[in-house]
Design a protein around this nucleic acid. Structure first.
Length: 437
RNA sequence: GUGAGUGUCGCCUAGCGGCUAAGGCGCCAGACUGUGGAUCUGGAGAUCGGGGGUUCGAAUCCCCUCACUCACCCCA
């Protein structure tokens, strides 16, 4: 048997049933984003390679899909939605600030697919550009919280940290200049491999035992302690750390008023983020149940726009990972069952009555009912009902000569098999008031 | 990019050197010619991912290749 062509590795087809789930999630996100005043934006999937390269860090650069186009230009598929946003902000200085935008679109990464990781996947980004106020950072977190709650998530924790604080922490521990990234990468694994694992890894990397000890002096989590308060004294003479602490304190202050409960976030010194461009607060959300990594990730990036325009414009934002969120929601059973969007199948009785059935479908659509006419070449009521049943279409409209003569339509409820003759003029209203709308 | 595991009808799975590769789901037809989802009966559908090799004989063993999955790296 001939093997039909497959989708590329790590890239997937989304059949209707799955698209309905995705649209549900995207719909919730759009509503929430717009409720906070974020405006829609879209950018090309392909960018000049120069635009993308050197923004994410050495490792990540290798994961950019790059190729040469017909004109010999070096181009790449966008790696995230943040860099294209920075490019847009640099290119259109007239955009009024603060500029608040959201973007829901696919991005590409040339890495090996794995659980919860694809080569083509959708990100849902919200960002505020043009303000250094921690109000913007707090608002981003409030939006994330709101969006996840709207979807039905209950047990999730947004982890907060701050790059400036991490920088101060490294300095305090005596990490040599230029080695911070390597240290932080190990620290990031704390919840995965534990303190012993991180210590071992750092020692193997060649860091002095005193450095590792000093690092853990401050990382050590005390029961219910206020992390920021605890750090203020030891890091008193480090301006970076003080700034980072102050930023987080301000964010924390605003979150309450924005309706984000204290249980929904946690300051976590061991949370680092890989991408190079973050400069201040950083955030991510992890869920425990299906271990799938983070479902959101973001932070402040005050110098990214400046790389493009020569003039820094502060910005902060976050991504919600669509595929991971859909995967998690599916595992948690957070989706309403919905195989089809069709509300009613209009059946065809025979060639003579077909025009009347088409007219009925047209009437229903005009009234806002999602109505489908059976299009199969082989007719037969049996086949048409089986089709409705398989598709999960909740209602079937039957109109043969009897109904037409009486000016009625027989409406069959596919769930319990009951049916009832309804005057033609009332069919749409009846369907619209039906429980499964 | 590195390592490990798995590829058998559309889907899930049995078979692990030897009769025409077995079963479930789904599909098709009928019992039921204005009526689905239950039940029963019958039917179609697989050169066992692809290529090469070992053997009298390969879905079963070996090599190569492709795909998928998982882990590392990194991340949504």
């Amino acid at each position: 048997m001939a093997n039909p062509p497959q989708a590329l590795r790590g890239m997937r087809d989304f059949l209707p049933e799955r698209m309905i789930l995705r649209h549900h999630v995207i719909g919730v996100f759009r509503r929430v984003f717009e409720r906070y005043g974020f405006a829609p934006l879209d950018t090309p999937a392909v960018e000049y390679a120069d635009t993308l390269e050197g923004k994410y860090g050495e490792e990540a650069d290798k994961l950019i899909y790059k190729f040469e186009d017909r004109g010999g230009r070096q181009v790449g598929l966008r790696y995230d939605l943040t860099v294209p946003l920075a490019r847009v902000v640099a290119l259109y200085p007239e955009l009024p600030k603060p500029f608040k935008r959201y973007q829901i679109a696919p991005v590409w990464r040339a890495e090996r697919p794995q659980k919860g990781r694809y080569r083509e996947f959708w990100q849902c980004d919200v960002d505020t550009v043009g303000t250094s106020s921690m109000l913007a950072d707090a608002e981003i977190l409030a939006v994330l919280h709101d969006a996840l709650v709207q979807l039905g998530f209950r047990n999730f924790v947004m982890r907060l940290n701050n790059r400036k604080l991490l920088k101060g922490l490294s300095a305090y521990a005596g990490v040599p200049e230029g080695e911070e990234a390597s240290v932080l990468r190990s620290v990031d694994k704390l919840d995965k491999i534990g303190e012993v694992g991180v210590r071992t890894e750092l020692l193997e990397k060649g860091f002095a035992a005193t450095v590792v000890d000093r690092l853990f002096d401050l990382l050590a989590p005390g029961e219910g302690d206020d992390v920021l308060a605890r750090l203020r004294v030891p890091l008193a003479d480090n301006p970076d750390a003080q700034q980072g602490i102050a930023e987080l304190e301000q964010v924390r202050e605003y979150l309450g008023a924005l309706g984000v409960p204290e249980t929904a976030y946690r300051i976590d010194l061991a949370m680092v983020r890989g991408l190079d461009y973050y400069t201040g607060p950083i955030f991510e959300t992890v869920v425990e149940e299906p271990r799938i990594g983070s479902i959101t990730g973001g932070g402040r990036y005050d110098h990214l726009v400046g790389i493009f325009s020569g003039r820094d414009i502060p910005a902060v934002g976050s991504t919600l990972g669509l595929e991971r969120i859909v995967d998690v929601m599916e595992a948690l059973g957070l989706f309403p069952e919905e195989k089809t969007r069709t509300q009613v199948l209009v059946t065809l009785f025979d060639a003579d009555t077909t025009p009347e059935a088409l007219r009925l479908a047209t009437e229903l659509r005009g009234a806002g009912v999602r109505a489908e006419v059976y299009l199969g070449e082989k007719g037969g009521l049996k086949r048409q009902l089986a089709y409705a049943n398989n598709q999960g279409i909740p209602w079937v409209a039957l109109l043969g000569p009897d109904e037409i003569a009486r000016g009625e339509v027989t409406l069959r409820d596919m769930r319990d098999g009951t049916q009832q003759a309804v005057p033609r003029a009332q069919v749409a209203d009846r369907l619209k008031s039906a429980p499964s709308g």
